[in-house]
Amino acid sequence: MQERVIMAGFGGQGVMSMGQLLTYAGMIEDKNVSWLPSYGPEMRGGTANCNVIVSSDPIGSPIITEATAAIVMNRPSLDKFEDDIVANGNLVINSSLINRKAEREDVNVYYVPANEIAVELGNSKVANMVMLGAYLELTKVVKTETIVEALKKVFGERKAHLLPLNEKALAKGAEAVR
């Protein structure tokens, strides 16, 4: 098993932390993991992306050239990464902010209105968790419980009160692609 996922959006959408969370969860489940961010000026307000690999075998290159999945949070990310997905891979599109359909016909495309779902839950910031929930439902790369366990560690006691909201977001995301 090797899952190679590109996560992309604009700065502030929580793309990097979504990637780190999946990486962390993979590590907890004793899988091989790597997280590689884009860095530099493009990080200052532009598009941000990260490459996450979760694998049962040791990981070669941490750079993803042939993604098994892509989670795109905005339009420039869809334009940039749609072609990088392997045939029969998964493409999860944030339909709240992306006004076009996917062009690829050989990949599995899922439209998730992540921002609307997040707003319904009371906090637009958990749109990333909605997207991650959808992706996990599709791929089962790690268990949702492990993501929650990772979240607990990342949040610590100071932010523990945010846990239920994030759990709900993961669940709603999963529901959206079920």
Binding site: Q20, M27, W35, I59, P62
Partner: peptide
């Protein structure tokens, strides 16, 4: 890459 990436 080594500087910026995360691994266990």
């Amino acid at each position: 890459m080594t500087g910026q990436m995360m691994e266990p």
